[in-house]
Design a protein around this nucleic acid. Structure first.
Lengths: 213, 213
DNA sequence: ATCAGACTCACACAATTGTGTGATGCGGCC
DNA sequence: GGCCGCATCACACAATTGTGTGAGTCTGAT
């Protein structure tokens, strides 16, 4: 039988080595390459065929979300499994919208991971079990929620988050984006609600957890 | 020859599995156990002898710094290697003061890691190479610096950081710690300088990078 | 015994953040 | 053609944060 061609992208060499060691033990998997960030992963994809891309959400240069969007466009058949530490709902919906096939937590076991890769290769959606619960929860919690239970965070808002993370004041952000401070304040206000936090500190914490920054 | 008894503590199962797979290949190492947080690691240490403890800095329940301090007190001969993603100076000094033997970045290679464990077992201090550079840099940069180039962040200050991260106001933090708001403000002020940030947002970002929270 | 560092507090003031409310233009969708 | 989400802006006010400066205890190390 054909082996499943796997590409690993993670910025931590130890993680890459570890994943390689784990996956190498399975006869039906073939690790064809590794990458230290999303950009490298895309480069690799252009050169060699890959079945499943194992992608860390938090990476420098190009993060998982961005990589997913680009990769899906260029390689529609590629299956992408997100590997993260985060267990929040909001970002997951964004990821699936972007075209991710799976979403596994780093505290899943190696067996779960291997099974996930195989499932993804067969076209199944893969989600860490305790996450599915979370998603169902968030849907049943709010009666009105049909599918967009969690408000989507917009592109502009993400820009604002990133600038806040750079320790800029509202004034400085406004200058940078060529808008008024009022506008920035409104974005922040909306972000607080969407992200369910009380202030910028909470926002940045969550944003880091989510891999937005 | 006696094998080196290694205990792995990391909250991500995948990481544990990965490290196990990597280290298992080396004949001179023996992974005697694993733990999902610092507390579990300490429990294990009470029951079985361990030579080297591989410790993730960022963990729930009990983080690496706290674990190190406890472990050193109870098991003075134990070698502790910190495994982190962070490459900042300040926290390193704190860790060595607490009794860590080594400090490796997660983007070190597997060979480097294995060598590090062996070195640590022989009593050598182990630091990721590009970190030593950083430390030397920080010493030579500031002419006056003799050894304490980077100011130590105190226990109390870390408490404050953690509470800020929980989105508490200065007032709430003061209540929680039974001190005045002025005191909390002073701690924050000092933290900004020590951590070289402009505001709470920057502080929390850095604190997360450093694994303080 | 002395000294440095940690922890505490005060007071005053400037700067920023966060909130409440309301409103407009624009593009996509059914 | 109308509705909705996104992005924009205003204005006013309350709440918090950040800064400057000075100072008193207590403890551990030299």
């Amino acid at each position: 039988m054909e082996k499943i061609k796997v590409l690993i992208a993670d910025d931590h060499q130890i993680m890459v080595d570890g994943l390689k060691a784990i996956l190498a033990k399975d006869r039906s998997l073939d690790i064809v390459g590794t990458a230290g960030n999303g950009l490298e992963a895309l480069e690799f994809l252009k050169k060699e065929p890959v079945d499943v891309l194992l992608l860390d959400l938090q990476m420098p240069v190009m993060d998982g979300l961005e990589t997913t969007m680009h990769a899906r466009k260029a390689f529609p058949d590629l299956k992408i499994i997100m590997l993260t530490t985060n267990d929040e709902g909001s970002i997951i919906t964004s990821l699936f919208k972007a075209g991710a096939t799976g979403y596994l937590l780093k505290n899943a076991s190696k067996d779960y991971l291997i099974q996930g890769i195989k499932d993804a290769h067969e076209g199944k959606k893969v989600i860490s079990s305790h996450l599915t619960e979370k998603m169902i929860e968030s849907l049943t919690d709010h009666p009105k929620a049909k599918e967009g239970a969690i408000p989507m965070i917009t592109k502009r808002e993400i820009e604002v988050v990133k600038l806040i993370a750079q320790e800029l004041t509202t004034q400085e952000i406004a200058d940078q984006l060529f808008v008024s401070t009022n506008t920035v304040a409104t974005h922040k206000r909306n972000l607080f609600v969407k992200m369910e936090v009380k202030n910028s500190v909470g926002m940045i914490k969550k944003a880091m957890d989510w891999g937005i920054i």
